[in-house]
Amino acid sequence: MEIVVCVKRVPDTSEADVVITGKDIKKDDLAFEINEWDNYAVEEAVQIKEKLGGNITVISVGDEEAKEVIRRGLAMGGDTGIRIDHPALAGSDSMAIAKTLAAAIKDIDYDLVLTGAQAGDLGAGIVPVALAEMLGVPHATLAVGLDIEDGKAKVKRELEGGLMEVLEMDLPAVVGVQTGINEPRYVSIMGIRKASKKEIKLLDISDLGLLPKDVGEEGSLTVIEELSVPPVTKVAEILEGDPAEAASKLAEIMKEKGVL
C-alpha cells in the first residue's frame, strides 16, 4: 500500500483572546499543533501500513514551521515527508491548496490518500473531496471506519444523529478522516528526535508545474474580505424566574440553538 497523508499545522485558539490583524489573526502568542483530524489520519495510515505493509508519505503545504507536523507524522510511522512552500501561496483558499496538493500527489503511485475531514482553524472541509475530484478518483469524507481489502476501501461515514453510511469504493481513493476513527498513539519527544533523520523533501510550486497565478489570491475563487469578532457572551447568562419560568426559557434557548 502506498499511502499519502495530508497534514496541516494549525494554531490552537481554544483559550486565546483572538486579535484580528487585517485578514488574519495575530498568531505570535499562539501554540501550534497538528490539525486534530490529521492526527487521526496519520494514525489510520500507520495502522493500515502495520497490517498490509507499504509506505507512507506525509505531505503539508506550509512554511518552514510546517516541518514540525510532518516530522510528527514521520515519528508516528511515516516514511517520507514532503513540504510545499512558495510565497505565491499566500492567500490561497482551500481549492488552491487542494490544487497544490493534487499537483504533488499525482506524481506518486498512490493507492490511498488520507486527509482530515476538516481543519480546525479555517474549517472549510473542502480539501479531501476537492482533491479527489482533481485527481479523478473516488472519495468519501467523515470516515469513522475504514477497511482496505482486495483493492477496495470499505468506509463508514458518520452522518448526523448516530447513523452511519456504509459504502465501498475502488482504490485509489481519497478518504477524509473524522476524529474518533482510531486512537492516535502518543508521539514522544524522543520519537520526534529520531524521526528528524528521515528526509523531508521541499518542493516549490514550479516543481509541481504550477504558476504563481494558479495559487494564492489570484488562483482562488474565494477571498477573505474582512474579519470581525462575533459578539461574545461568556459568564453564563442567568435565566431568572421561578423554576417553571427558568426551565421554559432554557427549553426555548435549546430549541433556538438547534439542540432540541
Binding site: 485558539t13 482553524d121 477573505i224 474579519l227
Partner: peptide
C-alpha cells in the same frame, strides 16, 4: 473560523 472566535466575510 478559528472555532467560532472569528467571523470571516468572504
Amino acid at each position: 473560523i478559528y472555532s467560532g472566535k472569528v467571523n470571516a466575510k468572504v
